[in-house]
Amino acid sequence: ADPCYDEAGEPRCCVPGLVNAALGREVLASSTCGSPANRVCDSSDPQRAHSADLLTSAPGTASPLCWRSDLLQRAPFNITLTVPLGKAFELVFVSLRFCSAPPTSAALLKSQDHGRSWVPLGFFSSSCGLDYGRPPAPADGPAGPGPEALCFPAPQAQPDGGGLLAFSVQDGSPQGLDLDNSPVLQDWVTATDIRIVLTRPAAQGDTRDGGVTAPYSYSAAELQVGGRCKCNGHASRCLLDTQGRLTCDCQHGTEGPDCSRCKPFYCDRPWQRATGQEAHACLACSCNGHARRCRFNMELYRLSGRRSGGVCLNCRHNTAGRHCHYCREGFYRDPGRTLSDRRACRACDCHPVGAAGKTCNQTTGQCPCKDGVTGLTCNRCAPGFQQSRSPVAPCVKTL
């Protein structure tokens, strides 16, 4: 069964499955240990390289298991982890498991334009006001009508020495918003890139060896970005295109990496995101098989009661009109052929002398005849008339 069409072949809303969008993606870390090599970390030795790609490799497939930052001798202790997802995803959650004590301050950001600009999704801190100038997140979500980046408690250190930073898109979103019908929620969950900024190690402020600030580092594994490939309800899966880029397998007459526009000939109504109630498929223009291109006209769409706004371009086979549904001047409909037949329109073929013009009746094919002339193409004298020698009055009354 095709998830994008029902048993009757009618389009229906379809979405790709929930995946870890970060799995296998390259992670850009602002700091990674091992250059230069030290006792525990050597970037040139696969057995001792704690590279950032360990954050997104399949669980249990890599050794060592954890990424480690370089040793941080003094403030600022900011380390940035950036994961380009390759295309837009609709986020559900983000999590990062720490292999050592989790930071006491971190920020989670997203980009919707492949890293050109960033907006925060949430903050995590033991001192929200001091670190981010924000109050701790209210228990019942944001106070405003839309989603917003709230400041949550910093991840708790676990008995094994690690910790988990976890964020759900619902955490920053008011209750009751519905993804189908809330453009602000759709915007909130959409991301092409995820960035985690670790800003304060757990032990910062401790001193050892007579007041000298100890060097600190971050160590983490399993960066997960749970989400669905964003296809706006018009695809059930994403595939790699010929250039190796992740892209939606668009259905419903849509195209683009996110199925966010109608295919060129499918512009009989404006593009819309599919919802659970309505697939909002892009409809092909009705051109009776005589045109390959069409354009959308909003005025016609409104006048039609929001049903059809497509206008066929370059009607072929001697047809004309918004839907290539009548014959162009100098041609008439052959009643023996269907409108979609390539030869549905026949040339008028009006007689150069007997006809008063070259344009015939588009329905009957009758040419306009001069006085005393008859026939569909005006090629004979009417009864009671005979041919003259004058091309101006080719038929005269019989004496």
Binding site: V373, F385, Q387, S390
Partner: peptide
């Protein structure tokens, strides 16, 4: 009664040269 089709050869184009269709 079916009349014959117009015979182009019978027309005199002397005064209507500019109207004469190309054959």
């Amino acid at each position: 009664e079916v009349m014959p089709t117009l015979d182009m050869a019978l027309f005199d184009w002397t005064d209507y040269e500019d109207l004469k269709p190309e054959v």
